[in-house]
Every structure is written in C-alpha cells, then in structure tokens.
Amino acid sequence: MTSLLQVQGLGKRFGGFVALSDISFDVADGERLGLIGPNGSGKSTLVNCLCGTLRNESGEVRFAGHSLAGLNAHQRIRRGLARSFQLPRPFGTMTLAENLRVPILYAVQPRTGARVPDIDRRCTDLLGMVGLADKADRKPADLTQIEMRKLELARAMASEPRLLIADEAMAGLSHQEVDEILALLLRLNAEGVTIIMIEHIMRAVLAFSQRLVVLVAGRKIADGAPQDVVREPAVVEAYLGS
C-alpha cells in the first residue's frame, strides 16, 4: 500500500507552550488508523494542523503526494481531506439536507469542475446512509446527540473525501450508539475511504484500528499494531501512571 498522508517533523506551539513537537507518521491508502492519547496530549491540535484550521510552525504534511503547506482548510477539503468536529458544528439555520449541500457545492464541485447532478437526491442518499433520511427537512436543533454526530459524519462524507478524520465521533454515546457509529465508519472504510479515528473509548479504537499512534504531551510515543502498542510500558504509564 502507498502512503496517502505523510506527516514529517510537525511542530506547533501556542506562545511558549509546545503543543506538538516533531510528530512524524504515515497513513497508507485505505488504512484504518487509531490516534489516542490522554486529554491535552495534542490530538485535536494535530487534526487542526492537518486540516488547515491551524498553521504548523515546523514540519511538513503531504497528502496524495503533494505538500499541503500554505493551503487553507477549504483548499484541503477540496483535495479530499475531510474532518468531523469533536463537538458537532452544524449550520443551525439550515435543514439537514441544506447542511450537506455546503460541502457538495463548495468541495465536490470545485474539485470535479462540474455541477453535481441532482444534488437533492445526493443529500437524501447521504442522510439515508446514516439513518436520517426522514429528517432531511428538519433543523439540527431538533436532533438528539447521536443524530448530531451522524449529521457531522454525513456532512464530512458529502465532500467525498479520500481521508476522513473522525475527531471523537463517539464521545458521550451509549454502548449501542458507539456500535452504530463504529459500523458506519467500517462501512465507509470498506468503500475505500482512509480513516483516522481519534477516540477515548478503547473498546471502539481497538475494534476499529489496524494501527495505533499514541500521543502524550505533544510527542508521539508509540506507533504500531494495536495489541503491541497497548502493552508498551510508556503507553501503560501515560494512561495508568507508573
């Protein structure tokens, strides 16, 4: 498998605080990668640097063979790098279907350079994929927490990404709801989407990931097969204390 995403020596600081330092890893095309780490270890900062919401001071991110340096978030999603937000950020005044129109109009259309035919149908299909088709004309405020997460994922999928970064898509959900989201992500992966899952729920991460990367205090301390990584002394210490 070839590398879809290459992160090389990435560093980010906020004033004097070093949030990320010298992070390097690759993600292969079609891979399912789990990214874990305690609170404050820099996972979300890393996502923000990968997606262009924040600028990294040092290091390089390459996607599909091209450097992403200097590209804004909207340019990155147009290249196929999508993310869902940890706390769902729906467009509140729009219906669910209209929420999905945004990435179709602004990420898919500029990428292909052609009008997407039958956008309404496409929106309904995407909502159907996450089981929200019957709520297409409702506003996000009417949704439950898990439905909001599903909308977040559907919107990320509407951009037809090659790589999806799911930032804690399951936090706060029940056991059964976690399984639902998990099944959804596995199905997307089977359809060819590379996925980075950021998650605290170890059961879900271990069931999902082919490989684990562990961040602690802005540094990568482990990278490898999930069963091996969770036994590494440094990882055990970070999670359980020595």
């Binding site: 978030a73 993310r83 950020r89 467009f91 945004v102 109009l105 602004y106 990420a107 951009s159």
Partner: peptide, 20 residues
C-alpha cells in the same frame, strides 16, 4: 449557501470547503 454557512459557523464553513 456559502454566506449562510459563514453566518452559522465560520470554522465549520471553512472546513467544508467554503472560501470564507
């Protein structure tokens, strides 16, 4: 649609491809 996305959530708009 782009304007409305900016009004509702500018960060999310940018992340969804809107050149804010």
């Amino acid at each position: 649609t782009g304007f409305a996305a900016i009004r509702d959530d500018e960060v999310a708009a940018e992340a969804n491809g809107v050149p804010t």
